[in-house]
């Protein structure tokens, strides 16, 4: 049995007096797609942000590829890592935001090339050649010199995915990647996600696209009020949900 790519155990997180995550246990094997579903406010995004330490967990552990995220363990003590070490860990984990968060003053190509040069110290000429390849892969080979505001929402999100891929991450986290898009642009982004899934990229995707979950996910996780209500293959969780709350959620989403 190989170690899982992502191992989340006993994660708790509160914002002030609001408990957002109340003991999450979750694992994802390498090369699999995990889709996290749940009503808004269920803690999906927070959980995702804990995986690359954009949020600090209050309790519990997150491991990616066997490496503890954000902390170093000596005996029964956890020492918080320095910012430099955390940034180095993050460079191995791609993150795609709901609002793209492309750098508006840099071209598409510069957006993709920035992190490999400055975070990994790779030579710029090679990075730019690869950035161009990645833009081609997401269907934007001819838009490298465009600034983000000159692109449609779907194109911007595809650039953001290319930007995440440029670091050759072991894992990519997607935080509602299609929620900010016009309905007719959702398809082009999901196509890229399906393509990545086929290539064996390890992905955790928070989304409301049940259709995508059904065809691309290896595991579907249903989250509610900061707890995992149920998880399993999509055929099980989506078609034969065991819990009342999952059923209620799906009946609302699948109308």
């Amino acid at each position: 049995m190989t170690t899982p790519m992502v191992e989340i155990s006993g994660v708790h997180k509160s914002f002030g007096s609001t408990a957002v995550l109340r003991g999450i246990d979750l694992t994802a094997r390498a090369g699999t797609v995990t889709v996290i579903l749940g009503p808004s406010g269920s803690g999906k995004s927070t959980l995702l942000r804990c995986v690359n330490h954009l949020e600090k967990v209050d309790r519990g552990l997150v491991r990616v590829d066997g490496e503890l995220i954000g902390y170093r363990r000596t005996g029964d003590r956890l020492h918080e890592l320095s910012e430099r070490q955390i940034l180095r860990q993050r460079a191995g984990i791609g993150f795609v935001f709901q609002n793209f968060n492309l750098f508006p003053h840099l071209t598409a190509l510069q957006n993709v090339a920035e992190a490999p040069i400055s975070a990994l110290g790779r030579p710029p000429s090679r990075v730019y050649a690869r950035a161009h390849e990645l833009l081609e892969r997401v269907g934007l080979g001819d838009r490298g010199d465009a600034y983000p505001r000159q692109l449609s929402g779907g194109q911007q999100q595809r650039v953001a995915i290319a930007r995440a891929l440029a670091l050759d991450p072991k894992l990519i986290l997607f935080d509602e990647p299609t929620s900010a898009l016009d309905p007719e642009l959702v398809g082009e982004v999901l196509d890229v996600l399906r393509d990545l899934a086929r290539d064996g990229t390890t992905m955790i995707v928070v989304t409301h696209e049940i259709g995508f979950a059904r065809e691309a996910a290896d595991t579907v996780v249903f989250l509610d009020e900061g707890r995992v209500v149920e998880q399993g293959p999509p055929a099980e969780v989506l078609d034969r949900p065991r819990h009342e709350r999952t059923r209620a959620f799906l009946s609302k989403v699948l109308v």
């Binding site: 940034l87 460079a91 400055s118 975070a119 930007r163 670091l167």
Partner: peptide, 11 residues
């Protein structure tokens, strides 16, 4: 800031 941090770009 978040995007830059998520990409591991030095401070």
């Amino acid at each position: 800031h978040e995007a830059a941090a998520a990409l591991g770009i030095p401070r």
